[in-house]
């Protein structure tokens, strides 16, 4: 079978299993939804009525396939708290979460790549040791802690940036960035450490290759050898790790959106969890997992674009 077709099939299977698992967690686990919604004082008749409304009286698998059918057509049901369509709720909040994660990723890559390049100029040198120690420190800092520290430093002590709250683009680019910079830093300042370590170690391996010697023998200055010859062949693991770490980033985004009161998908999910809003949680978790799986799929494709050897193997066979 064609490589691409096989990958797409695999993607479909994983997505199916992921949504099913979400459904099972949300539905099997103890805690009666109807009671949770109506409170302990509700009469049995009320509860039964609500269960029927929610379709909870039908067999689980039937409900799952119903849900899956509508989900495929873009209908994730309605929140039974607000009555809002879940898909709409997610769509409204998605831009904020995306902006947060993209900014965090840009910060992370923006620090990690130069730091790794400078580190391998002299392995074991002052800069290398300094950046390794810094990375080690940040690695021990959870994002919720970093968020608080950043608020303490930039909002409380220095009074430079707003502590919480979100300004949409419509209030001006600067206002928007001001409200997003601390949240993005809370994630990016942690993420870079992992990326830097991966890239550094791959760079060191690449720098031992003969083609690097050949590049030097051509008379290329060290920084051009690094940037033009070493960086790209060293970035494959980095890209994979960026893809895998998006999972961590999504988790971090849930926390950071909560700390900084950003109206993103993570906060939507938390709200749903606190309110026992079953349909909302089911939809949001499935959406997040599907997005994560998709991104990793795309990263895999990117890999093929970047590495001609992989492209060769995959698209010619």
């Amino acid at each position: 079978m064609h490589w691409l077709a096989r990958q797409v099939l695999r993607l479909a299977v994983v997505l199916f299993c992921v949504t099913l698992l979400t459904f099972l967690i949300v539905n099997i686990l103890p805690g009666d939804v109807a009671t949770a919604i109506l409170g302990g004082l509700a009469t049995p008749e009320d509860l039964a009525g609500l269960r029927a409304d929610l379709g909870l009286d039908r067999p689980m698998l039937v409900r799952y396939f119903d849900w899956l059918g509508s989900a495929l057509s873009g209908d994730l049901g309605r929140s039974h708290r607000s009555g809002e369509p879940v898909a709409q709720a997610i769509a409204d909040r998605l831009p904020v979460s995306l902006q947060l994660m993209i900014m965090a990723q840009v910060i992370a890559i923006g620090i990690a790549v130069p730091a790794a390049l400078l580190s391998v100029r002299r392995p074991g040198g002052l800069f290398d040791r300094l950046s390794a120690s810094t990375a080690f420190g940040f690695l021990a800092t959870p994002s919720f802690m970093l968020g608080i520290l950043l608020i303490y430093l930039f909002s409380v002590t220095l009074d430079l940036l707003p502590a919480t709250g979100f300004s949409p683009m419509s209030e001006g680019l600067w206002a928007n960035l001001e409200s997003m910079i601390l949240p993005a830093l809370s994630l990016g300042l942690i993420e870079w450490t992992v990326l830097m370590r991966v890239l550094r170690s791959d760079l060191l391996t690449t720098l031992k290759e003969d083609f690097i010697l050949l590049a030097r023998a051509k008379g290329l200055p060290p920084w051009r050898v690094l940037l033009q010859h070493a960086l790209r062949p060293s970035s494959f693991t980095l890209i994979t790790v960026i893809g895998l770490n998006i999972g961590g980033l999504i988790g971090g985004a849930v926390i950071v959106e909560q700390i900084f009161a950003l109206p993103g998908v993570g906060r939507l999910l938390l709200g749903g969890i606190f309110n026992r809003d079953l349909i909302l949680v089911q939809g949001t978790v499935s959406f997040i997992a599907a997005g994560f799986v998709l991104v990793n799929f795309l990263v895999d494709m990117l890999y093929a674009v970047l590495d001609p050897r992989v492209r060769h193997v995959r698209f010619r066979s």
């Binding site: 992921v18 686990l29 961590g248 999504i250 988790g251 849930v254 949680v281 978790v285 997040i288 997992a289």
Partner: peptide
């Protein structure tokens, strides 16, 4: 396939 924290939250 699940972001870790999201799965933990749900559980």
């Amino acid at each position: 396939a699940f972001p870790t924290l999201v799965l933990a939250l749900t559980f």
